[in-house]
Amino acid sequence: MTQRILVVEDNDLNRKLFCDVLQASGFDVEPVADGGMAIERARSFVPNLVIMDIQLQDISGLDLIAGMKNDVALCDIPVLAVTAYAGKGDEERIRQVGAEGYLAKPVSIVPFMNAVKGLLDRSAAPAPLPLHA
């Protein structure tokens, strides 16, 4: 089954680049330009991964990540946060709201795909079996 990735990015060029690279790698991709539609689209598309821009025009990507992580239907979907404003403490703050991955823009293709595949592999891995005493 093809893995599905929701790309939440309000910059047209970045959104197209992310989507083109992911589609060329065989993923089913759903682009979202309007952050206000991200959670609704995630519920209908049911992605295996969300790529989330942090600096959206209409809403904070941090708020969207927190909203997803507080939603029973979406909380287990890993999030790869991308931001152009990578400052001291930003990665920690982004991970605190629930993002499992983080990349600073400009994003290079190889690190981007490594992060995507790493998060998908980690989320698809079976849970470890409990040890019996």
Rank of each mutant, 00 (worst) to 15 (best):
F18I: 04
L49A: 05
A66D: 06
S25K: 15
M37G: 08
E40N: 10
R15H: 11
I59N: 05
P78A: 12
A38P: 01
D28G: 09
D76I: 07
N48W: 00
F27A: 03
M52P: 14
F45G: 03
A73C: 04
L56R: 02
A66P: 06
V21Q: 13
G67K: 01
E30I: 01
L13A: 15
V82D: 02
I51Q: 02
V32K: 02
P31M: 09
N14H: 14
G26T: 14
A38W: 01
N70T: 06
R43F: 06
S44I: 09
K16T: 10
S25H: 14
A84N: 08
V82N: 06
I77E: 00
D53Y: 01
A42C: 05
D34M: 08
I65S: 03
P47E: 03
A24P: 11
Q55S: 13
N70E: 06
N11M: 11
A42P: 03
Q57K: 12
V29F: 02
R41E: 00
A84P: 10
L13V: 10
V32F: 00
V29Y: 00
P31G: 03
I54H: 04
I39D: 04
L17H: 08
G36D: 09
V72G: 11
I54T: 03
G61D: 05
D20Q: 05
I77M: 06
N14P: 14
V82W: 08
F18W: 01
L22A: 04
F18Q: 05
D58I: 04
V32L: 02
V21M: 12
M68E: 04
Q55Y: 07
M68L: 06
I51C: 13
G67D: 04
F27R: 09
I54M: 09
Q23N: 11
G36F: 10
I77A: 02
K69A: 07
I54F: 00
A73N: 13
A81H: 05
L13Y: 12
N11S: 15
G26Q: 13
V32W: 00
Q23L: 08
D71E: 05
T83G: 03
A24E: 12
S25N: 15
E40F: 02
E40A: 14
G35P: 13
G26M: 15
K16I: 11
I77L: 07
S44A: 15
P78S: 14
